[in-house]
Design a protein around this nucleic acid. Structure first.
Length: 117
DNA sequence: CATATGACGATAT
DNA sequence: AATATCGCCATAT
């Protein structure tokens, strides 16, 4: 429940014109391994809580929704706010990923991995 | 407690 | 590139 609340806060704080990955939102919400729960929150609460759901994409920098089931809408919404999305739904994370706290998720993960090893 | 679900992620083939 | 498989874990039932 707490995770869900924090996940929504994280999603709402993604700036216009930037994107964040499911795992990134999960990490900000307190559990970097709970990406699937972020998906679930988006599925169940996007409309109800007016979340900027279009700004959440997968770790490969792509739109996860299937064509005919939200893909086109998400692509359109992102392009409308300045995010470049190619025809296959790919976005350049190097350019558009929101660097919350100045830390890129992959870099943070690498850092953590070194500490744990 | 047991099982199912999910807009995921990493890795193997 | 596309698919399969496994790991993951908060919620729902």
């Amino acid at each position: 429940m707490e995770f869900e609340r924090r996940a929504k806060e994280a999603i709402k704080s993604i700036p216009r014109g930037r994107v964040a990955t499911y795992a990134q939102v999960a990490a900000l919400a307190g559990n970097h391994r709970a990406a699937r729960q972020v998906a679930r929150v988006l599925h169940s609460s996007s409309a109800k809580d007016r979340l900027p759901w279009q700004r959440v994409i997968n770790s490969r920098g792509g739109i996860s929704l299937k064509k005919g089931h939200g893909f086109e809408q998400q692509k359109r919404l992102l392009i409308k706010e300045g995010v470049r999305v190619d025809c296959s739904g790919r976005i350049d994370l190097e350019i558009f990923q929101w660097e919350s706290g100045g830390i890129r998720l992959a870099a943070a993960e690498d850092f953590l991995r070194k500490l744990t090893r």
